[in-house]
Nucleic acid binder design. Structure first.
Length: 232
DNA sequence: GCGACAG
DNA sequence: ATCTTGTCGC
């Protein structure tokens, strides 16, 4: 897909894709997904996962696993070119698409408003949120140190995202709209995805599952979690 | 020109 | 991102 694209062309494509971004709230959210990629050191094989959780309960309902060969190196500002092709492949294994997808990285909190979450959202025509573990870009304000505190991140007066404290005295995560949602909804939804860990549940579960896949404990394909029967 | 730089 | 032990703080 992006095997031989130059950085110059990649930058121009990001600018074109950014023109297609749309922001409106998702209605009636009942499922939310986490997407992640893992790989062995010095290997070009990417292990991918998309895990679907109930919202706001955060119970794992299903997950899809697959592999993909790296065709573009990681470069700050161009993460989508490496990860999106792999994520689109595992995305196809899912027949019941989730209402929202949370990506490990940024949405419009990006120099050209085209972080991996926005990039995936445009190509999949799917509502997405970016949730990064460190800051890539923007005027970084610092939130209070208590859980659920947040601060805005801006650039030239534009609201690009939020630093959200997910746990007392722990480094914040960086939240931004990807596509087909709003900044306000992205923040609101990510607050509800916080469990007892620094990393919000969709991404945390995705990371956990994809690592089990990488070390051979899980197999490729679509997996559904049977719900325990409620007897009455 | 220099430094910073999601995963 | 991955590799990898101990260590500091709530």
């Amino acid at each position: 897909m992006y095997e031989n694209i130059s950085i110059e062309d990649a930058k121009n494509l990001q600018l074109e894709l950014a023109k297609q971004l749309r922001f409106k709230p998702v209605k009636n959210i009942s499922t939310i997904a986490g997407a992640d990629i893992s790989f062995n050191k010095n290997s070009t094989t990417m292990y991918t996962v998309i895990v679907i959780l109930s919202y706001p309960e955060m119970k794992v309902q299903a997950y899809a696993l697959d592999t993909f060969e790296t065709a573009f190196p990681y470069q700050p500002g161009y993460l989508g070119f490496k990860e999106v092709p792999a994520l689109l492949k595992v995305w196809e294994l899912i027949s019941n698409k989730p209402d929202l997808v949370v990506l490990d990285g940024n949405g419009i909190l990006h120099p050209r408003r085209m972080g991996v979450a926005s990039h995936f959202g445009i190509l999949a025509n799917q509502p997405t949120i970016g949730c990064a573990k460190s800051i890539l870009y923007g005027e970084n304000h610092i939130p209070e140190r208590t859980k659920y505190s947040y601060s805005t991140i801006e650039s030239k007066g534009d609201l690009l995202g939020f630093a959200l404290r997910t746990k007392d005295n722990c480094a914040p995560v960086y939240v931004s709209a990807g596509h087909l949602t709003t900044q306000e909804q992205a923040l609101e939804v990510m607050k509800k995805c916080i469990g007892n860990y620094r990393i919000p549940e969709p991404t945390r579960r995705a990371h956990e599952i994809v690592n089990d896949f990488r070390i051979g404990k899980l197999k490729a394909g679509y997996h559904h979690i049977d719900q325990p029967l409620t007897l009455f």
